[in-house]
């Protein structure tokens, strides 16, 4: 069986996988990183989003082998070592942007990429459109949009 070598949250792993193993399966089942979720089977929901080389990617739609040589960041690696939350995590908490928490890891990872890729800042409408790849059934998005808007200046100031 093939092997894949990748860095996850700063730590290198070499893992034996089936050719058909998905990146999300590698993260959840081989590395025990269960913060990345699976909410669908048609690449619609975004519960599985992580950063691959700094860019948001749906790990349900990517083979583990495609991640060979990459650096992956998951929700587990986001907070500082002392537990200080990333500004996006902090704003999600502050603005009650999560209820059941299932969409949250993917939502936060997508939101960070969205903000990073818009240094000029986004309007509410642009944030809403930028979230087209992520579904949340609980919140109605109102507070998620608010949290992302509030995180923008904090992240750009850094």
């Amino acid at each position: 069986m093939p092997q894949v070598t990748l860095t996850v949250n700063g730590k290198q792993h070499t893992v034996t996988v089936e050719a058909r193993t998905l990146l999300v399966e590698l993260l959840r089942e081989k590395l025990g990183l269960t913060g990345t979720h699976v909410g669908c089977d048609t690449s619609q929901c975004g519960a599985c989003v992580v950063h691959v080389d700094g860019i948001a990617a749906k790990t349900c739609t990517m083979l583990a082998l495609q991640a060979d040589g990459t650096s992956v960041a998951t929700i587990e690696g986001l907070a500082a070592a002392d537990g200080t939350l990333h500004p996006m995590q902090e704003m999600f908490r502050e603005h009650h942007a999560l209820q059941c928490g299932f969409c949250t890891p993917g939502m936060v990872m997508s939101a960070i990429d969205l903000v990073n890729s818009h240094p000029e800042g986004m309007t509410e409408r642009e944030i809403r459109e930028g979230l087209e790849g992520n579904l949340c059934r609980c919140t109605g998005y109102h507070n998620i949009v608010k949290a992302i808007a509030a995180a923008q200046p904090l992240m750009h100031a850094k």
Binding site: T34, G35, I75, E76, L98, G101, F102
Partner: peptide, 10 residues
């Protein structure tokens, strides 16, 4: 409950 969910520890 939020910190747990926000850090992938649900």
């Amino acid at each position: 409950e939020d910190v747990r969910f926000l850090s992938g520890r649900g």
